[in-house]
Amino acid sequence: MTQRDLVIIDSGGANIASVLFAFERLGQKAVLTADPDKINAASHVILPGVGAAADAMTKLRAQDGLIDCIRGLTQPVMGICLGMQLLFSFSEEGDVDLLGLIDGRVSKFKQHSADMTIPHMGWNNVVLEQPDHPLLQNVGQNVGQNPAQSPFFYFVHSYRADMNDHTIGRCTYGDDFTAIVARGNVAGCQFHPERSGKAGAKILENFLAL
């Protein structure tokens, strides 16, 4: 694979090492930084994140110029887990305004039955709403509307983004929510592609090919 100038934004989250290692397994080096100049200069940018939305926004704001930098990026950007949620407009988790790159709200799962434990933790299938999207090439069998045949990914989260016009992968837990989103140069996965076996690795590889 051609080396990209990949930057992982140092958002202070705990899953950064696993994201770095996942790219290493693909033969891709990554630079971890919160420096807007270095992020602007990258060919591809990952916004990782675990934890709470309000804390994450506080950390991003603490770095001079970082939020404006992320909002202004034109190269491929991918948010992972909380990093994906940050792309939206607003989160109920701490009632905080997010980056606003994609219209939409992030809200807590509602418990629909006694068996529905929260956090949503484990492997769930994602129906590829736009199987022809470049990010989803060869990610799994398609799929169509048959959830039994769609690929599985590893999720760990208590908040989720509503379905919206830019949802390209749909997951169901209680109700439908956005598992994969893409709008222009910006994309995101609610699950952890770095911990989702071959299907997850394929999404990261597709991202690098953008």
Binding site: A17, S18, F21, Y154, V156, E194, K198
Partner: peptide
Amino acid sequence: VRKVAKILDIP
């Protein structure tokens, strides 16, 4: 831990 994290693509 680090060695395991490098080879595993599951949590």
